[in-house]
Design a protein around this nucleic acid. Structure first.
Lengths: 342, 342
DNA sequence: AGGCGTTTCGCAAACGTTTCCGTATTTTAA
DNA sequence: TTAAAATACGGAAACGTTTGCGAAACGCCT
């Protein structure tokens, strides 16, 4: 656990003062090129590594960004984080990553833990239980850099990155209608979520545009436990007024639907067509039948979040993060699960 | 960005010295119960949050653990991290998470970044390219707490958590033989990896025990790019001496195999039976046909790693992490992909 | 009453940086 | 030739904690 040499020892070795060595390593104009060379080479020789905490304490920044997401076992969130890491890593930033497991109490706890400056910024997607957002509002009011993606808080005036939820859901629903569906259901997580609201709007408007009346019994709000979701979907599929098409607003509910279908005689796409927001493309093609997907630009969303934050954190006098919603379009890939039978 | 009150301000408010306040908050025996009450209540009132960097600088520990893994889009690694987070979170530890993307240069860079004490410990799974382990050896020689899981470094004398790779592969291969396979192939990532070595041994020994000769042409070493893997597997499946059974040592290669099979006339399980190490149980059941899996106790592995580390980091005078390999058994779940046709 | 131990608290150093300021030396300008 | 300016570096404070040490105040016993 012996941390190597520190600045003072390095300075002693060079017969220079710590301040000079510090400046030399930070490439200050006050130091001659000659001594810079000497200092740098000696630092490498002794493998000097500056203590990050001393530096953070002094500079009041941590070179660390926190990411808070509702669940880890999700290709979407994994890809977003890959995108974030791609750009933050290039700038020497580290990533603290937290999963709330869709638990708002845990989310609050994490946010409170981060209020002491351990991270320079937070980029997050709220839990499905989050309706009271006071913990997030407080964070933002303190001037703490906060960015949302996907599951956003509209009421907090900062930058949010989403996909074109409304249009994608609209187009996806329209696609089902064009494929002959007339009784189209909608699968969602909590109605509190920004994404379900927007996607639901798109779904409803597409129905309306086609002159179809929405049926409340076909709209299913699911919970966290996979088994229960499968049962609920199965019940829906076996109900009297069962759907001939489904729009799933999240990946996990599409998978739950496939599980539910397996337990019945229902055939996709003959009896039921389904389209879903879905990020795991490799899996989508392997399902039977392959799944028509609305693919969010997950990696790209992560990159954009990180780019904005890096700009805010590294440039000298940056304004606050602008209060705007930036939408990066999804892409619909039509596969067998919505193709009409011949 | 205004960090709230600090210790000095809190002390001034209470008309006490900072040292007394610090001791009171840390529940020191030197402070009377009466003033402890006062201090704690005032701290809550002013929402005092101790500066983590000042504390880390003084105490020389960061309350942070780093996790390094080869890829993020993997249900196995996601579950391991869930397990780690579950126990570290309870002890107030934070998680820095890094993905090497199977790139050993990136792995080295990350390890070097962590040598300055930013994390109190590292738990990692090495990249498939890692053959030179000098960066890891150096870390361990410095006394830095280091734990491996799954893809381990045998030669570094610390604690490693794995599953019973040899036995699982042996049993899995034996299962294929019992189901009638005679030409069993093996899919692997780099031969450098501990897991492929062990699983390969199990595979070979099971063949030998059944009196079957191993065929080198049936043993495929895959790369990082999914497309190429699919092509390579397809070529294998269409070759003259094609396998009637496959043992896949990692999840992604089983998925690649399903993709490859889709491009051919081959039927699973009639023409080809397949078993794979696989963590995404939900998906395994949805594949067509459903996939026989060897499921590693991913969450449990993460928990055990974290428990050991927490013990090492929080108890006062702990010995070094013992040089041992701890194996937590996998579970084989037989599904349709290995069932004999009738 | 005086000594001694216990309780309770304050002072100041320390952790390893960065940076404000001062200063000695050299260069430039008049 | 001299004053001013530029260059190159050192001393010391500061960031916010924790903790070793010292020192009051108090009670207790003999």
């Amino acid at each position: 656990m012996s941390t190597g040499v520190n600045l003072k020892e390095l300075a002693a070795e060079l017969k220079l003062s710590p301040s000079t060595v510090s400046r030399a390593l930070n490439d200050s104009y006050e130091i001659s090129e000659e001594t810079k060379k000497k200092v740098v080479s000696m630092a490498e020789k002794l493998n000097y590594q500056p203590n990050p905490f001393a530096r953070s304490l002094r500079e009041n920044k941590s070179k660390t960004i926190a990411v808070i997401m509702p669940e880890r076992m999700s290709s979407f969130f994994s890809k977003v984080i890959d995108g974030i890491e791609e750009v933050t890593h290039q700038h020497g930033y580290h990533l603290l990553i937290y999963s709330t497991h869709e638990d708002v109490e845990r989310e609050k706890k994490i946010v409170n833990l981060l209020m002491n400056g351990r991270a320079d910024a937070i980029v997050m997607s709220v839990s499905s239980q989050t309706s009271d957002i006071s913990h997030l509002a407080r964070l933002h009011e303190r001037g703490f850099p906060l960015i949302f993606f996907d599951r956003i808080c509209e009421s907090i005036p900062t930058t949010k990155f989403i996909t074109n939820d409304y249009e994608s859901a609209y187009d996806g629903t329209k696609h089902l209608i064009q494929q002959g569906c007339r009784k189209i259901g909608f699968l969602m997580l909590s109605k509190e979520l920004s994404i379900t609201r927007e996607r639901y709007r798109g779904y409803l408007d597409a129905l309306k545009a086609a002159g179809l009346a929405p049926t409340p019994s076909l709209q299913l709000t699911c919970a966290h436990e996979e088994e229960k979701n499968i049962e609920a979907i199965r019940d829906l599929l076996l109900s009297e007024d069962r759907p001939d098409g489904l729009v799933s607003s999240v990946e996990k509910l599409a998978l739950a639907t496939y599980h539910a279908v397996k337990k019945t005689d229902i055939k996709i796409p003959e009896d039921l067509k389904i389209i879903s927001f879905f990020s795991n493309l490799s899996i989508a093609g392997l399902l039977t039948p392959s799944l028509t997907t609305i693919t969010q630009p997950a990696f790209n969303i992560g990159e954009e979040c990180a780019k904005l934050l890096i700009k805010k954190l590294t440039k000298p006098r940056q304004p606050d993060l602008p209060n705007q919603v930036i939408s990066i379009p999804s892409k619909i890939t039509i596969r067998a699960s919505t193709l009409v039978e011949y």
